[in-house]
């Protein structure tokens, strides 16, 4: 089984911003891979490196064994525009035909339209389509060329629940038919619904690369903030994964189970005040989980 695409120690900078930082990733055929992370984590840059839109600052990107910047390497790749940016004066059917002309064996427009629920829209100019219809057309375009690898960047952003589920169902059918799919999202729900393998990115790095079940188990993290004169005893309580103190003495703890933590905190007799509990965002969950494995130089201000 050879990899469809690889990133080998890839770094990409924009000026002094490092969008992707020493990332290695192998995409094998067969799975739906979810690329999860908050905005600015580097997901879109990874996708655009694989599409050949951008060059890595260092490291190598391979697509079907070639350089993605060569057109020939992209003949089995399907992508979709990130924003609904179809040329407004072209008809939906014309856009499908136009994109299909780039591939050796395009899916006929009628067949594609049925699959993505575009049947009665083919004669409409794309400027007249609704947001959800444009999104369906955009995603459909990724499958015109019968691709082996499909890269979908935020495919359902801005869609309502029904439209999102319809699109997910179409993606699963395409996957069952043999396409390997990489889908980026900042919604855990979307990744849960689609992916088998999950790569979590934060601040340009890969924070986790694991099966869906393992990743979901790890992001159910709670954050507890409190003030205490004895931070060392707090830190030693069972279940505390990380503990940070800010300048005015507030402690921020991350724990997998806040109820269990409170049951341990109160009988311990450690003095505390101003306690609040909230769910951690994905970013916070993964940053705290990987704090030991990634040396971090930034201090948390305030």
């Amino acid at each position: 089984m050879t990899a469809l695409a690889t990133l080998d120690r890839v770094t990409r900078r924009y000026g002094d911003l490092t969008a992707v930082n020493d990332v290695s990733l192998t995409i094998d055929p067969g799975v739906i891979l979810g690329l999860l992370g908050p905005n600015g984590a580097g997901k879109t840059t990874v996708i655009s490196l694989l599409q050949g839109l951008r060059r890595p600052t260092s490291g190598t990107v391979r697509l079907f064994g070639g350089d993605p910047r060569d057109a020939a390497s992209r003949s089995r790749l399907g992508s979709t525009p990130q924003e609904t940016a179809l040329p407004p004066t072209l008809r939906a059917g014309e856009v499908i035909d136009f994109v299909g002309k780039h591939f050796a064996d395009p899916v006929p427009r009628g067949e594609l339209a049925d699959e993505f629920g575009l049947g009665d829209l083919l004669r409409r100019q794309t400027g007249a389509l609704s947001g959800g219809q444009k999104r369906r057309l955009s995603v459909a375009l990724a499958f015109v060329g019968r691709p082996r690898l499909v890269l979908l960047d935020e495919p359902t952003t801005g869609l309502d629940v029904d439209a999102r589920r319809t699109l997910w169902a179409a993606l699963r059918r395409q996957h069952d038919a043999g396409a390997t799919v990489v889908v980026t999202s900042h919604y855990l729900e979307e990744i849960e619904a689609l992916a088998q393998r999950v790569v979590v990115m934060g601040a340009g790095r890969v924070l986790a690369d694991d099966s869906l079940a393992n990743v979901v188990g790890r992001v159910g993290l709670r954050l507890i903030r409190l003030r205490s004169p004895e931070p060392d005893r707090i830190r030693a309580l069972p279940g505390v994964l990380t503990c940070e103190a800010d300048a005015d003495g507030m402690l921020t703890l991350s724990v997998p189970d806040s109820d269990a933590f409170l049951r341990a905190l109160i009988p311990s007799g450690v003095p505390f005040a101003e306690l609040t509990v909230r769910g951690a965002t994905l970013e916070e969950a993964f940053l705290s989980l990987t704090e030991e494995s990634i040396p971090r130089t930034t201090e948390h201000a305030s």
Binding site: S75, S79, P81, A85, F103, L141
Partner: peptide
């Protein structure tokens, strides 16, 4: 426009 980057991902 985002359409142009999309065209550049096609095998042309």
């Amino acid at each position: 426009k985002p359409w142009d980057p999309y065209l550049r991902t096609l095998p042309a």
